[in-house]
Every structure is written in C-alpha cells, then in structure tokens.
C-alpha cells in the first residue's frame, strides 16, 4: 500500500494530525517515509484495527514515551508491508495522555507480542493499560517503590535512588 493511501485512510476515518517524514536513505537515496499520526485517545484502538486491514499480521515494534510536562505522549511504532524489497513503512501512532488520567486500552488481545512493551511502559511511566492482565514488573526489580517512575520528568522520578558515584570520586581527591 502506498504511503498516501495510508495517510488518506487514517485522515478520512479519524480526527488526527498526520505527518510524513521522508528522508533519502543510504547511497541509492531510496526514500524512507515514516508516518506519524497524532490521534485522540478514543480513536487509538480503532486506528490499530484499521492498520490490521492494511497488514494481516501487523508488526509491532515498541512503545516509546515522551514526557511533555502536563501530558505523557505514547508512540506506538508499527511496521507494515514488511518482507518486500524497499516497501516497508513505519507507522507511528501517537497518543497524548494527561498525567492525571494515564489510561489507555491494551492492545495485547490484538497483538500478543505487545505484552513486554506494555509492561515496560506501565512500570517506567505509570500508564494503566485497560485489559492488561499481567502488570508485574519486567525490567525493574520486584521491590521497586510504588509510585516512582524513572522515565518521567516530574516529582515521581526517584531522585534519591540515583547512584551519584561522582560524589565519591571528588571525596577521593580531597583525601589525597
């Protein structure tokens, strides 16, 4: 499917802001075009279902999270048309969630492979995935303090847990 068709498909179905970032890649200057669609939360799941219409087994890469101050932006990176020469496209669905209501529907029922990524975002930034059954820690230790999120840029960041080794280096110099 062409990039334009995906963009039009997303635009006609949902109220969203679509950006196509293109870049001539490599020595043959093959154009790599990444689609970023910034959607409303209520449309997100339908948009994933729409991507399934394009690609039977949608390839899910990962969820990125960006702290925008009052909001947390989640970026779901998908790829479509994989397995074909020069055809693969990255489609990123972005959803902004207000920090006082960090909730979004889980997509693990559509894509079982998204389990680890949802568990990671749950523990790193504190997003609640509705429908995600397994919410145990995956990358953080089991005794990690509750309500502390290392990838957020606000008061929930565990400042006191930083291992400030440079302080000891300074101390070492003074002793000498």
């Amino acid at each position: 499917m062409k990039v334009e068709d995906i963009v039009n498909g997303l635009k006609s179905r949902f109220e969203c802001d679509v950006k196509v970032q293109s870049r001539a890649c490599g020595t043959k200057k093959i154009e790599k075009r990444d689609i970023y669609a910034r959607l409303r939360r209520e449309d997100f799941r339908k948009a994933v279902e729409y991507l399934f219409e394009i690609q039977e087994y949608l390839h899910f890469s990962v969820i990125s999270a960006t702290d925008l101050g009052n909001d947390m932006e989640l970026l779901y990176h998908f790829t479509v048309d994989y397995g074909k020469r020069n055809e693969e496209k990255v489609v990123t669905l972005c959803v902004s969630l207000p920090k006082d209501d960090l909730k979004i529907e889980s997509i693990t029922d559509l894509i079982p492979g998204a389990l680890i990524s949802e568990r990671e975002i749950h523990e790193m930034v504190g997003v609640e995935f509705i429908g995600l059954k397994d919410t145990r820690h995956f990358f953080l230790p089991e005794d990690w303090p509750e309500g502390k999120y290392p990838w957020r840029r606000d008061e929930t960041f565990p400042e006191d847990m930083l291992n400030k080794l440079y302080e000891t280096w300074k101390g070492g110099d003074e002793n000498e």
Partner: peptide, 22 residues
C-alpha cells in the same frame, strides 16, 4: 518462513546497492 530483514525491506547504508535478499 517470514522473509523479514530491514536490510532488504527498508535499506539503509549501502545495502540498496548491494542487492541484499532475506
């Protein structure tokens, strides 16, 4: 049996010229 390879699907670097196949 999934012929998925970034070097073939979305070539970067010099792979496009090297005729890479998964």
């Amino acid at each position: 049996g999934v012929p998925k390879d970034v070097r073939q699907d979305a070539p970067y670097g010099a792979y496009a010229e090297l005729d890479m196949k998964a």
